[in-house]
């Protein structure tokens, strides 16, 4: 039985080695905020953080992980929608259907960690998630706003 460290907690996993992290999260741990959409690592709906990097969990076999890696899912981003991205997303009403948004937010969170003041070019390069409702305009505004909120928080 494998052990994983998810949102700060060590959890026991009982799944075939080839099972993608996505399905362990969704079906063993009941953490359905991480979404299935393409299953081939393209759309980004399943994005989680592994050691601070944005990773598409649908193509990460659970066998490649152990409890030394810190996995963060959308459920672990904050306990109360207080992450600057969540605040900005709420302020701007970013989500439409909302299905891609956990992955979008998790992707943006890593971008902001790496580049606290991202330019539009940084956003273009760092956010490659698909959104069929087309929230991109507000996603871009939201990332900039979150950067501002973070700055205010630090000052």
């Amino acid at each position: 039985m494998a052990k994983l460290k998810i949102n700060g907690k060590i959890v026991d996993i009982d799944a075939d080695d080839s099972t993608p992290l996505l399905w362990v999260l969704r079906e063993q741990l009941g953490m359905t905020g991480t979404k299935y959409s393409c299953g081939i690592g393209i759309c980004g709906a399943c994005t989680v953080h592994i050691n601070g990097e944005a990773v598409r969990s649908c193509v990460v076999p659970v066998s490649s992980l152990d409890s030394s890696q810190a996995i963060t899912t959308i459920e672990g981003l904050s306990t109360d929608n207080s992450h600057p991205l969540q605040q900005a997303w709420k302020e701007l009403d970013v989500p439409q259907c909302g299905y891609c948004q956990p992955g979008m937010i998790m992707t943006a969170a890593v971008l902001l960690n790496n580049k606290p003041n991202p330019t539009d070019e940084d956003i273009d390069a760092g956010v490659t998630n698909i959104c069929r409702c087309g929230t991109f305009k507000r996603v871009r505004q939201g990332i900039h706003l979150a950067a501002d909120i973070s700055k205010r928080g630090r000052s």
Partner: peptide, 27 residues
Amino acid sequence: VKRLDTDDKLNGKQVFGADLSLPGMLN
């Protein structure tokens, strides 16, 4: 006015059809 359905879309709580789970459910 702001949308009424935003909060749960920010933290993974929004339940979509694909997320549903019922007792004894198979897939």
